[in-house]
Design a binder for these strands. Structure first.
Lengths: 203, 203
DNA sequence: GTCTATACAGTGATAGAC
DNA sequence: GTCTATCACTGTATAGAC
């Protein structure tokens, strides 16, 4: 079936099953059987809506991207500095947040496999590009208002996204505890370094 | 066979075959047949030295960790700032470096799968811990000498490692071009922000 | 639409010849 | 030590009943 023809309710169901299966087994060990086990449907039932396993995963990525975009957009502070800090807070996922943790690690595994899987590459790019653009937008506004120094908004946003993704691998996937609760201090420090000179207070 | 009993020459051969196979197919699609195809041996030949596919991958990780550790230690500048910049240069792999690119993306994929694979977790932790300790050592020395501000060496090193890993996923695996050649400007800027106040020059 | 049953290819790993 | 042949199993995807 054409992915766009799948009823939204069914897409959400499949995406949720894929999410649970990924959190339990990881992408490299993901099978259609395991997806079905997390769903109300049988394997064949899943194939009624999706033509392949990859299509099911792509459906999950689409839902995840929407979710993340909504979360980043929901920060309603007016101050660009506060908005950037809130966005970072969301990007650097806490160890105890079971659900986000599973999703973020799964996205990292899919992302690392993107060079070998054309079908998943585009949805992953979209997800990352959304996040990047959210941060870049906040930075752009802050630069205009004089809150931030005159940095490259997109490059700086990319640096933060990369650090967030890497922290997911380092702290959540590998379980490395170095640097305490995922780099919150370092991120705060980095955001400090972006502030316009007048606004900066460092001890 | 006990992994420690494998002759070093044979381990290097298998590790090299695993590296090539990973670069071509990624971890999720890695098979013992594909490893054998990149080696001079047959599948059964590989099993003479290693008891399982995971053991072959662990052998690759061990070799990769040694290689990376040697490269980071080889930076022979005396100045901590120069050493940190050289280490970052190595951590943020360039798009055109085919070989390192393959290795780094492969390590990222394995790392993201670590929660689901006990056998690979420890070698991966060792690899990352080595890198972390290299950077932390440089930072510690620089702080003592007054080159760097009094930051947390391990936390700061973790932030840099995370950013480097994330950049691998973002730029090398996904092929996102945002921020130009993998974040070199942003990294340089971040290192600037670590310099002790007296040493800093910003425009 | 959803199921059970199944086709058919490929998987990790082993046996046994050389 | 290294090979060819092979095993038992699991993988994705489809057929056809309901």
């Amino acid at each position: 079936m054409d992915p766009d023809a799948v009823p939204p309710e069914k897409q959400r169901e499949v995406a949720e099953a894929v999410r649970k299966a990924l959190a339990k087994h990881g992408y490299a060990r993901l099978t259609t059987r395991k997806i079905a086990a997390e769903s109300e449907k049988s394997e064949a039932g899943l194939y009624y809506y999706y033509d392949s396993k990859d299509a099911m995963i792509a459906a999950f990525l689409e839902v995840a991207a929407d979710f993340l975009a909504r979360e980043l957009a929901a920060v309603d502070a007016d101050d660009p500095e506060a908005r950037l800090r809130a966005a970072c807070d969301r990007l650097f996922v806490r160890r105890d947040d079971e659900e986000l943790r599973g999703v973020n690690v799964a996205v990292m595994e899919l992302l690392s496999h993107a060079p070998y899987n054309e079908e998943l590459r585009e949805p992953l790019r979209t997800l990352e590009a959304n996040t990047l653009e959210s941060l870049a937008g906040i930075l752009r506004e802050g630069i205009e208002r004089g809150t931030f120094r005159d940095v490259d908004p997109v490059g700086t946003a990319a640096f933060l996204v990369a650090a967030g993704n890497g922290a997911t691998g380092f702290h959540l996937a590998l379980g490395m505890e170095e640097g305490g609760e995922p780099l919150r201090e370092q991120v705060a420090d980095y955001v400090d370094s972006l502030l316009a000179d007048g606004d900066r207070d460092r001890d």
